[in-house]
Computed example of a mutant assay.
Amino acid sequence: MSIKICVFTGSRAEYGLLFPLISALKTRSGYTLQILVSGTHLSTEFGLTYKQIEEDGFCINEKVEMLLSADSDTAIVKSTGIALMGYADALSRLNPDWLLLLGDRFEAFAAATAAHLKKIPVVHLHGGEITEGATDDALRHAISKMSYLHFTSTESHRRRVIQLGEEPFRVFNVGAIGIDNIKQLKLLSKAQLEASLNFSIGEDCILVTFHPVTLESHTATAQLHDLLGVLNKFPELKVVFTLPNADAEGRALIEMIRHFVSENQLRAVSFTSLGQLRYLSLMRLVKAVVGNSSSGIIEAPSFGVPTLNIGDRQKGRERAESVLDVSHEPKAIEEGLNKVLSQTFQDFARTVNNPYGNGDSTIKILNILDQFKQPLDLKKTFFDL
């Protein structure tokens, strides 16, 4: 009997991480792959990235539009409500045996809630992590409690999911699936990448992604203003920005970045979506990853590339020693940038171990899924430490 497994994706970054697993499920004997697409994938404003999924050769079974074009907490709450209604209908049509999703965003929270209430077992990747500066932190733990199978990125994250009361036989440390892409993709050469970007990254380039710290109110624009001010003190540095996701204040940040690029056209460029191949190819070639994105913590160390992590968005997340944490104050950012760009720190970053695994998450996940066949008893016992 073939198991229908529905993979949910609501953002470009999440899809990029899931790509190796989706590819494997497409050809895996005993599974029928379904793909449910939502969130920024369907937004013109954020690049209509569902087209990339189709270009990669996947069939999208359901598209659920749910994202309001507004930049407030209220819009996020309303979008979550719209998503719940849309996912209820989509899951009724698909009737999957499993719903598989990754992470902690509000789109994924709504999908997990819909599946949980419809008695569809949820497979959750990247549970047990901590990001104390983001609303995603609580959503991630809530998704874990609504999930049946858990694939965590480190052993400490596995223990934390068990601490939430999940039975150990359903919780597995498989490493971070994003590392699989680093091991499997044939990355672009510098010349190929520059041609694709229509931008010369030169010898000294940084990759910058800055998201709102969603548990703070109205701080994002001031913090990005400080970061951009520091970047003006490094006129020789090339800068490639990837634009923020659909969080509260995100659109204001996008406008600020585009204004900075317009005033620094010879050394700065921004992209709504680079796609996983160009993004990882660029990460491999830059001097540092700067901002507050999880990719600077999870993927960058596997390339031996330093990360300057700014502020509290990723506070609490396990990290390699090549990740340098600084406050959002201009002086701290400037000192931190000088440090990660120094030859000493560049050399050091190439020696560190990445705690997020070795790039074999996909095969581990598939082998474990093979052990859990339908029908399942979804009445879980709370595991009390």
Rank of each mutant, 00 (worst) to 15 (best):
residue 205 C to N: 12
residue 9 T to Y: 11
residue 185 L to D: 07
residue 4 K to P: 01
residue 157 H to P: 00
residue 86 G to E: 11
residue 225 H to P: 02
residue 38 S to C: 07
residue 304 G to R: 14
residue 204 D to S: 11
residue 31 Y to N: 06
residue 369 L to N: 00
residue 306 P to T: 11
residue 81 G to D: 06
residue 80 T to C: 12
residue 324 L to H: 06
residue 54 E to S: 14
residue 307 T to A: 06
residue 359 G to A: 05
residue 1 M to T: 07
residue 291 G to T: 04
residue 49 T to P: 03
residue 218 H to L: 14
residue 46 F to V: 06
residue 90 A to L: 10
residue 24 A to K: 15
residue 333 I to M: 06
residue 182 I to Y: 00
residue 79 S to H: 14
residue 217 S to Y: 15
residue 9 T to C: 07
residue 140 R to S: 02
residue 343 Q to D: 08
residue 367 N to K: 12
residue 174 V to A: 05
residue 343 Q to S: 09
residue 301 P to E: 00
residue 295 S to Y: 04
residue 12 R to G: 01
residue 110 A to I: 09
residue 179 I to E: 02
residue 272 T to R: 10
residue 363 I to K: 15
residue 232 N to H: 14
residue 308 L to D: 00
residue 107 E to L: 10
residue 11 S to Y: 02
residue 266 L to V: 04
residue 274 L to G: 00
residue 41 H to F: 10
residue 91 L to A: 07
residue 53 I to Q: 05
residue 67 L to H: 13
residue 226 D to V: 03
residue 4 K to G: 01
residue 247 D to Q: 12
residue 25 L to P: 00
residue 47 G to M: 12
residue 84 L to V: 08
residue 237 L to T: 13
residue 151 F to K: 01
residue 134 A to L: 14
residue 264 N to Q: 08
residue 359 G to H: 03
residue 31 Y to F: 14
residue 58 F to W: 11
residue 216 E to P: 11
residue 211 H to I: 14
residue 167 E to P: 02
residue 225 H to V: 11
residue 238 K to L: 09
residue 203 E to V: 06
residue 161 V to L: 13
residue 279 Y to N: 03
residue 156 S to L: 08
residue 107 E to R: 06
residue 330 P to T: 04
residue 303 F to V: 10
residue 64 V to Q: 08
residue 107 E to D: 10
residue 46 F to I: 07
residue 137 D to H: 14
residue 226 D to P: 01
residue 58 F to S: 02
residue 180 D to F: 01
residue 369 L to H: 00
residue 111 A to D: 01
residue 302 S to A: 15
residue 367 N to Q: 08
residue 114 A to S: 14
residue 72 S to F: 15
residue 268 A to F: 01
residue 299 E to F: 07
residue 116 H to E: 09
residue 41 H to N: 05
residue 122 V to Y: 09
residue 50 Y to T: 12
residue 174 V to N: 03
residue 148 Y to E: 13
residue 276 Q to E: 05
